[in-house]
């Protein structure tokens, strides 16, 4: 079954049209890049899928269902900002995820936390930005979800942390799951992507396998992006 599907999906913020009649369909087992400049609608699309926003028109379906508490059980969402309470200890966060999500694999999370050699007694707000991102990603990827929505998972961290994050995504996603990664750091992610979606002013201007883009344009995805979005 199609994991992620949009038909005529539109979102207006007052007179601003953030998403304009978006049609998309993503099959299971794909890692997909949601790419576009700032303000192109990436976060809006992800927020509709995680039911933080409702569409103005059209629809979005996850495994055949419109976003609801049922789909929340299938979707693991990493917001683009700090979303966990800074006063909690890392170990408490693991407990909290275990309490909230039936599909949370505590053992896996613990193993990854250990590999970072993080002290579980550390408060989240005391961690460096890179470690904070890693902890949040570990929690997100330790769920056995059908759809992972990762909003800017590598923004603002150093290249080694980026590698760690991409590695964690590759080694943890389920072969039946979809991983949707929004980013504008394309050269860093392009090797791990199956497909790329380009969003431009709320419209989908490209949705293709990355290797097809390379074959057809003779450019890297990053190079092609720079051409499409030339200022």
């Amino acid at each position: 079954m199609t994991t992620f599907k949009c038909e005529g999906l539109t979102k207006n913020y007052g007179s601003l049209r953030a998403l304009d009649s978006v049609d998309l369909s993503i099959e299971p087992g794909r890692i997909v890049g949601l790419l576009g400049p700032n303000g192109s609608g990436k976060t809006t699309l992800i927020k509709i899928a995680s039911r933080l926003l409702v569409p103005s028109a059209g629809k979005l379906e996850i495994c055949g269902m419109e976003p609801s508490e049922k789909t929340k059980a299938l979707v693991s969402y990493l917001p683009d900002r700090d979303y966990l309470p800074g006063w909690m200890k890392v170990s408490e966060l693991v407990d909290m995820y275990g309490d909230f999500f039936a599909d949370f694999d505590r053992e896996r999370a613990q193993k990854m936390m250990d590999s970072l050699s993080l002290d579980g007694k550390m408060l989240l707000r005391k961690l460096s930005k890179g470690n904070k991102e890693k902890v949040q990603l570990i929690l997100t990827m330790s769920r056995r979800a059908k759809l992972y929505l990762l909003d800017e998972p590598i923004a603002g961290v150093d290249p080694a942390a980026r590698d760690y994050i991409l590695d964690t995504i590759l080694s943890n996603y389920d072969e039946e799951a979809v991983v949707l990664i929004s980013t504008h750091l394309i050269s860093d992610v392009e090797k791990v992507l199956d497909e790329a979606i380009f969003l431009k002013q709320g419209k989908v201007v490209l949705h293709k396998p990355v290797d097809d883009v390379r074959q057809e344009t003779g450019m890297s995805l990053d190079g092609y992006f720079r051409e499409v979005f030339k200022c």
Binding site: D167, S171, K191, V192, D194
Partner: peptide, 10 residues
């Protein structure tokens, strides 16, 4: 895929 840092489908 992990060694090369690429997508398993690739």
């Amino acid at each position: 895929a992990l060694e090369a840092g690429v997508n398993p489908n690739t």
